[in-house]
């Protein structure tokens, strides 16, 4: 019977056509401002550079220099260090906050209100939020003067601002939100009767947490982790600002090369950074189906 087949085919074709038409603007934007830039970066990473200009070439000099320099490995290690510490801190804090909101706040109105209170800073400027740590962490800042007044220290602590500590503090300050939102979202979808069943069977609160809530919250944890890890690994401005240019990560390596007009070398570093980030994401996506979790 050819007729139904044809009909289904034409139906499928019109589906595809409307799908393509509707997603055309999206596809065009992603092509010109995402795909093409990535391709350009890969191409230029093989180019050469003089002090003032760049010229087309096909050479591996940039990669050779990058991969043989001990600085590269130090900086990558430092980037991974920031990512791991920031990830652990944001996960612990974010999970606790989401857990409180989802299971201890009883009315929906309060849940939404407190949740919004947690998310509002996300819609304000990151740079201002970094600047706002200066009066707190500075040499004569609130933290130091309070500690001195309390007699805990005699000398102001020098490592509060412009240090690894400040960088990680800022990451936690800026990005914990990215953990709270997806974890809260998955927690709100947990059927409350599962928790009651666990309690009825004699599970303690802690056992319920580790055996029921955490396994069911895994997708949210994964999505939050992807956000935090990629944001921290790709960052350059937080590290530059909060460390007073004293610490380095891969993003700063790239932005320093850009500042010196060494675009090919910046591109080579960018390619390696992108590959690292995509590899991490690919591994994490194995544990969660994002399309299913939305």
């Amino acid at each position: 019977m050819p007729a139904p087949t044809t009909k289904r085919q034409s139906h499928g074709l019109s589906n595809a056509l409307s799908g393509w038409l509707m997603s055309l603007p999206l596809a065009l934007i992603l092509f010109f401002f995402l795909l093409l830039p990535i391709v350009t970066i890969v191409i230029v990473s093989f180019w050469g550079a003089t002090e003032y200009s760049i010229y087309p070439a096909f050479q591996f000099d940039n990669y050779e220099f990058l991969l043989t320099s001990p600085v590269t490995y130090q900086v990558f290690l430092n980037t991974i260090k920031y990512a791991v510490i920031a990830w652990a801190a944001t996960l612990l804090i974010g999970f606790t906050i989401a857990y409180f909101l989802a299971f201890h706040v009883r009315s929906l109105v309060w849940q939404i209100a407190l949740f919004l209170l947690c998310t509002i800073p996300f819609w304000t400027s990151n740079i201002i939020r970094m600047i706002s740590w200066i009066p707190f962490l500075g040499r004569n800042g609130i933290a130091n003067s309070t500690l001195i007044d309390l007699g805990i220290i005699d000398q102001p602590l020098e490592w509060l601002l412009y240090s690894d500590f400040a960088v990680i503090l800022a990451f936690v300050h800026l990005y914990t939100l990215f953990m709270v939102v997806p974890i809260f979202n998955t927690m709100m979808r947990i059927d409350k009767s599962l928790l009651e069943a666990a309690y009825d069977n004699g599970a303690t609160g802690f056992q319920t947490l580790t055996n029921v809530i955490i396994p069911l919250t895994k997708p949210g944890i994964m999505i939050g982790s992807i956000f935090v890890i990629t944001l921290v690994m790709g960052d350059f401005i937080t590290v530059r600002f909060m460390s007073g240019s004293q610490k380095a990560n891969v993003g700063r390596l790239i932005s320093n090369d850009i500042g010196l007009l060494q675009y090919p070398s910046a591109c080579a570093t960018a390619v390696i950074l992108l590959m690292t980030v995509l590899l991490v994401i690919a591994v994490m996506l194995h544990f969660v189906d994002i399309r299913k979790e939305l």
Partner: peptide, 24 residues
């Protein structure tokens, strides 16, 4: 393909977009 491009767009370090578009 478009879906994975959207995810890439989200996770790609911002400075790469800046650098790539600037170079183009």
């Amino acid at each position: 393909v478009i879906f994975y491009l959207i995810i890439t767009s989200l996770v790609i370090p911002s400075i790469l977009i800046s650098l790539g578009v600037g170079l183009i």
